[in-house]
């Protein structure tokens, strides 16, 4: 019986680390540009599909190599989103940007359908039984998922606290006008945010696809969880997003012990409602900004 709950907990941590990777980009973009990027989910999907493309004919690269060009193109998509849609709209009203991001999300998702169809795809990885650790099964991909999330967040921590770029990023999110007056290179900061958001989303998408499979809706479905994580952590708070993601992953997986598994998404949606009603700034969103 303990093995059962331990397995639920491990499943929760795995799911949570991926949610956190999706949430961090969303939180950063919100922290600096003050809008919710609905097309963030599509960076997840494109990352995964591009890896599939480079690992199948005519490219036929090994999966671990295909990740490189796939992530580069995903970053390109992220930067293009900003250059061609969000930057021209930056001074217009927030609703316009919101609607634009929803439109962009549809466009990118249907682009996936156009190129690869709506059918389910999988990476042809050899199937093997997971490793048994103290009654808990865990696959190699799942271990990789947790390690990647850990590594990514460590790098992010050093970037934000130990480098000038990171410090200017945090300054910009505190006050964008003042930072510009103080001579912070806004172009570089904007660029960094989109690169980080795209790399986190794209890598998370690839890992998720390796663990399960690919379909055009995978980004959209994960985005809802990422929203919940961001709300929980406090909009704009990177560390809040990490803890929020883990919390949601663990909560919904532990809920399986009590409610039918098919309704476990209920937990993340219920959390969104409760938080918006009682704690609209999240648990860590005391001061906002990228921290």
């Amino acid at each position: 019986m303990t093995a059962y709950y331990a397995q639920l907990l491990v499943n929760g941590i795995i799911a949570g680390s991926i949610y956190a990777m999706f949430a961090v980009g969303l939180a950063m973009v919100y922290g600096v540009f003050k809008f919710i990027n609905f097309s963030h989910g599509e960076l997840i999907t494109w990352g995964a599909y591009l890896t599939l493309m480079f690992s199948s004919p005519p490219f036929s690269l090994p999966v671990y190599i295909s990740i490189v060009p796939a992530l580069l193109i995903t970053v390109g998509i992220g930067l293009a989103q900003d250059r061609f849609v969000y930057r021209p709209l930056r001074q217009s009203n927030p609703i316009a940007i919101l609607i634009a991001s929803i439109g962009l999300s549809y466009m990118l998702r249907n682009g996936i359908r156009l190129c690869w169809g709506s059918d389910l795809h999988t990476f042809d990885l050899p199937l093997s039984t997971g490793i048994l650790l103290g009654g808990v099964y865990i696959t190699k991909i799942q271990i990789l998922m947790m390690l990647s999330a850990l590594l990514f967040f460590c790098i992010l921590y050093f970037l934000l606290t130990r480098t000038l770029l990171g410090k200017s990023l945090r300054a910009v999110s505190d006050n964008i006008e003042l930072s510009a007056i103080m001579g912070i290179n806004m172009k570089k900061v904007t660029w960094t945010i989109w690169v980080l958001a795209s790399v986190f989303a794209g890598s998370g998408g690839i890992l998720l696809a390796l663990d399960t499979s690919l379909d055009p809706m995978m980004g959209m479905n994960s985005l809802i969880k990422a929203f919940a994580a961001v709300l929980l952590g406090g909009a704009g708070n990177v560390w809040g997003a990490l803890i929020g993601g883990l919390f949601i992953g663990i909560a919904e997986n532990l809920s399986v012990a009590f409610i039918s598994p098919d309704y476990k998404d209920f937990i993340s949606y219920a959390l969104i409602f409760i938080l918006l009603l009682f704690k609209p700034r999240g648990f860590f969103g005391i001061a906002g900004g990228v921290r």
Binding site: L8, A15, L120, L208, T212, D215, M218, S260, P261, K264
Partner: peptide, 15 residues
Amino acid sequence: LPHGEGKTDYRSEIL
């Protein structure tokens, strides 16, 4: 137990 249509992760159900 029912399982959702078109999902990619059924691990909780399997558990």
